[in-house]
Design a protein around this nucleic acid. Structure first.
Length: 300
RNA sequence: GGGCAGGUGGCAGAGUGGUCAAUUGCAUGAGACUGUAAAUCUCACGACUUAAAGUCUACGGGGGUUCAAAUCCCUCCCUGCCCA
């Protein structure tokens, strides 16, 4: 059985992925699967640059707005849901197009990286976060020698998650395997640094005009039906970038000016981290225009 | 005009005779990531050379004291606050 064909579109934040994806979907009878760790959440709209209904131009989009931002979504969740979506799209005889900025999610999907299904354990996390990385590493070494060999001993997030999994399974973490599951064409949108910075800053201004601050405020304050509480500032800080720094602004920890300036540099730094990841991926075809992309897809 | 406090690397800001090319934070650059990934983490960061050692130029300008000065003295310039 030959592997199903899919298109993957990657690119730094503010490089124009969503738009390109829609154009390609229209041309090649496709549906889009978003690979974005923040756009999966309901209510995070302006801040994540989520595509709007009119912008979709009738193209179905998957994995947007699928859960509450109170909940924790992981690469494993993404993999399962994205696989399902791909199956459905193929069944309809349409072309699946993965588009998004979360490189880790895309790799997990494409290489069928097997991750455990252990859910987050907030109590344990809270407890473990009191400890230093040295202590955490020591515990991990006792409980799972193999994982301790590969983990970054300075990285609290990873150490805590590793311990969380052992706590739940009570056995060492199985080795991950890597196997290409799809026949994918990876297209990356290339953009020079100058334009990238320009886009980031312009887009941020635009979002603020569109009511970004209000969006964050509402997420925090709104008295939802069914007694649900607003999103805590703490959770917003975990969500990062716009949500993190606007939360700080709303808490009066920084002025609006400071917040905007900080966001500009933080978003730029994020974009660079994205690129660090993709630079290693030799399968990505970097393109500058839509035409180049179309040519490639035709051949594919 | 008088009094006081200051001027340090792209910025903020330590240091107050030798261990100072100078703590730290920010910015910047490079990188990691295979179980929270917009998160989290690592390294570099005066110049030249780079493996190490080394050389040079540097703590507002100029001069001085000293074996040795970012650090002490003199002088000039500049900034902030206070009194006229």
């Amino acid at each position: 059985m030959s592997k199903p064909k899919i298109i993957v579109i990657v690119g730094q934040t503010a490089s124009g992925k969503s738009d390109l994806a829609v154009q390609i979907a229209k041309k090649y009878n496709g549906e889009i699967i978003s690979a974005d760790s923040r756009q999966v959440y309901k209510g995070l709209n302006i801040g994540t640059g989520k595509i709007t209904k009119p912008e979709m131009q009738g193209i179905p989009h998957h994995l947007l707005d699928i859960l509450s931002p109170q909940k924790i979504f992981t690469a494993q969740n993404f993999k399962i849901k994205a696989n399902k979506a791909i199956q459905n799209i193929i069944k309809k005889n349409k072309l699946p197009i993965i588009a998004g900025g979360t490189a880790f999610y895309i790799d997990t999907l494409l290489y069928n990286i097997s991750l455990p299904k252990i859910k987050a354990n907030p109590k344990l996390r809270k407890e473990l976060s009191q400890k230093t990385t040295t202590e955490l590493f020591k515990i991990l070494k006792q409980k799972d020698k193999e994982r301790s060999k590969t983990i970054d001993p300075n990285n609290p997030h990873r150490l805590i998650r590793a311990l969380e999994i052992i706590e739940a399974t009570n056995q060492p973490i199985p080795k991950t395997t890597k196997k290409e599951k799809y026949n994918s064409l990876k297209i990356g949108i290339q953009i020079n640094q100058e334009n990238l910075i320009k886009n980031i800053n312009q887009r941020l201004n635009k979002r603020i005009k569109q009511g970004l601050i209000k969006e964050v405020q509402n997420l925090h304050n709104k008295s939802l039906p069914a007694g649900r509480q607003g999103l805590s500032y703490k959770r917003m800080e975990e969500l990062g970038l716009e949500y993190k720094y606007i939360a700080k602004f709303l808490k009066k920890e920084m002025t609006e000016q400071e917040m905007i300036k900080k966001l500009q540099t933080e978003i730029y730094k994020f974009a660079k981290r994205q690129m660090t990841w993709w630079k290693k991926d030799k399968d990505i075809h970097w393109i500058k225009t839509q035409k180049e992309a179309e040519k490639m897809i035709k051949k594919f």
